[in-house]
Structure formats: C-alpha cells, structure tokens
C-alpha cells in the first residue's frame, strides 16, 4: 500500500487563546475524495487553509506527497519552511474559494492563464489552449473575454474551478464552493465537479453543506466537531447509520430543514 498523499500528525493550531486543533491526526490516500461536514466553527476551513499554506501551524507535522509541508530538512533537522520550500509545496495544491476571489482586473481568460504563465513558465499559446479547454469543461467558452464582475455567481465559481485546475494540482481543496450562491445556481457548479471526477482521478478534499452531494461523490465522509473528527466512514454508513450522538443530531438538523 502506498503512503497517504496527505498526513496530519499531532497537529496543533491556535488563534491566540482559542485552540482549534489540539492534537489532530488525519490521512488522505491518493485519488481519494473526502468530504468534511460539521457545524460552523468546528475548524473545517482552517484545515483546508493550513493545507493551502494560508495559515501556519503551532505544532506537529503535515506531510504532503511524501514531503513535510510546513517544515524542511536542514542540517539533519526539521526547521520551519522558508518561502522557497512553501513555493515548491504549493505546486501540489489548488483551492477553490467560497467567495470565488477572482481577479476583477483581468478577463476570465487572463484569470485562468496568468498563473500557469507567470508561475510555471508555460507559453502563452499553450496556456490559452488549456484555458479554452477548461472553459469548455465548465461550460463558459463564450465568456473568455468577459470580466468577472459581468458574470453571475455560478459562472464566477465555475471560472474559479477552471482557474485552480489550470495549475494542474494533484490535490484540490474546495471550501464551501456553493454556499455563496443562490439555490438555483448550486447545481451548475456541482455538475462541473461531478463531470470532473468522472473523467479524471483527483485527490479532493471538500468542505460542504450539501449533504446529498457529499453522499454521492465521496469515498469517505468525515464529521468534524470542535477541531476533531468525531466519526468517519463510507458515505452510506455515515448518512444512514451514524453511530455517534453528535453526528445524529447534526444530520437530523439538516433533514429537518
């Protein structure tokens, strides 16, 4: 069996006095799709943000693709990573944000080609060709020259997905990518993800409040509460026969809606 592509070992994370993770352990296998569900404030976003290097950690280790994410070897010891190491590690990861965070001063196409060209040194022709393909995939081929502010929320998020894919990350992080959208726009975005995983294999870590989506797409569902995994398992097991009281209460609250 190969080593997990993501591994958290005794990770500690605090915001000032508030402890989010005290001793967190977690693994994701290559090409596994893991959904994270749980109440607000339980640390779901923080988990993804730590992986994307948007937040540091206060203890423990994280491995990504066999290398330490937040530490690097130096004179036989592990020391906090410098920006060069982080730059290297980020190549494995891509993220789609709840609030899209598209660059408003660039066209849709520029949003998608800028990073491959500037960061990876891909030629313009090649970057644009790939961008066209991605736009096709997310169904926005006709919007290449629009600016983000002229798009609907669902369209913006589909560009967000295309932009992340353009860097060809091996791990994709999705943080509540539909919760800023009007209900009728949710499915057009989720369909893109559905198609994506049908065509290619991805390691994907997604935080979501769309339970039906988590159930249909995931290999594994983790229920989070207060910075710890309370229960995890195959989606069918979690959604039909939760063992823990807290999981039951959380899922009941959803069904009740």
């Amino acid at each position: 069996m190969s080593a997990p592509i993501i591994e958290f070992k005794n990770v500690k994370k605090c915001f000032g006095e508030t402890v989010i993770f005290s001793d967190f352990n977690f693994k994701v296998e290559e090409n596994e799709i893991v959904s994270i569900i749980g109440p607000s404030g339980s640390g779901k976003s923080t988990l993804l943000r730590i992986l994307m290097t948007l937040e540091g950690i206060d203890g423990g280790y994280i491995n990504v693709a066999g290398e330490s994410l937040w530490h690097m070897p130096w004179q036989g010891q592990y020391v906090p990573a410098n920006s060069k190491h982080l730059h290297k590690m980020r190549n494995h990861l891509g993220m789609v944000f709840q609030h899209f965070n598209l660059f408003p001063h660039m066209t849709v196409k520029r949003n998608i080609t800028e990073a491959p060209m500037r960061v990876k040194g891909v030629s313009r022709a090649e970057a644009e060709e790939f961008a066209d393909k991605l736009l096709q995939l997310v169904g926005l081929a006709d919007k290449a020259d629009s600016y983000p502010n002229d798009l609907s929320g669902g369209q913006k998020q589909r560009v967000g997905i295309a932009r992340a894919l353009a860097m060809k990350p091996s791990i994709l992080l999705l943080d509540e990518i539909t919760s800023a959208l009007d209900p009728e726009l949710v499915d057009e975005v989720l369909d893109v993800i559905r198609n994506l995983v049908k065509e290619e294999s991805f390691t994907m870590l997604l935080v979501t409040h769309e339970m039906y989506f988590a159930r249909e797409i995931s290999d594994r569902v983790c229920f989070f509460d207060k910075g710890a995994i309370v229960e995890e398992g195959e989606p069918e097991a979690i959604f039909t026969q939760p063992k823990e009281e807290r999981t039951k209460a959380f899922l009941n609250a959803y069904i009740g809606q």
Binding site: R90, N91, M95, V119, M167
Partner: peptide, 15 residues
C-alpha cells in the same frame, strides 16, 4: 481574498 487566491495560485510575493 485576493491575497489568498494569489497564494493558492503560487504567485511569488512580488508577483
């Protein structure tokens, strides 16, 4: 969010 997106896309700090 603009900083965060540009970190996620691995731009260098000057980019």
């Amino acid at each position: 969010g603009q900083y965060e997106a540009s970190i996620a896309l691995n731009f260098t700090s000057s980019q």
